[in-house]
Amino acid sequence: MSYYLLLSALLFAIGLYGVLARRTAILIFMSIELMLNSANLALVSFARSSGNLEGQVMALLVIALAAAEVAVGLGIIVAVFRSRESTSVDDLAEFRG
């Protein structure tokens, strides 16, 4: 089994723990970035092991998508903070408001 693939699986699991255990929206978002990066590491490892560059192309596209996701996500967090004065996901559990 490949070392770097195992590493990427471990990073993904750590990111998953962060998403489940953190209580603030922005820190959950940072854990999601960690998971995206571990997927990129897996793609680059696949490109390396198969000698095919398309894995790296996919990782490049994932980085561009992550940039778009960060822009929208942080915009939502700032907008929610303005109306609720909080970004704790427990405070955001109601539909009202």
Binding site: M1, S2, L5, A9, S45, F46, S49
Partner: peptide
Amino acid sequence: AFSGVGPV
């Protein structure tokens, strides 16, 4: 799931 992939 990764156990079948060759070495990197």
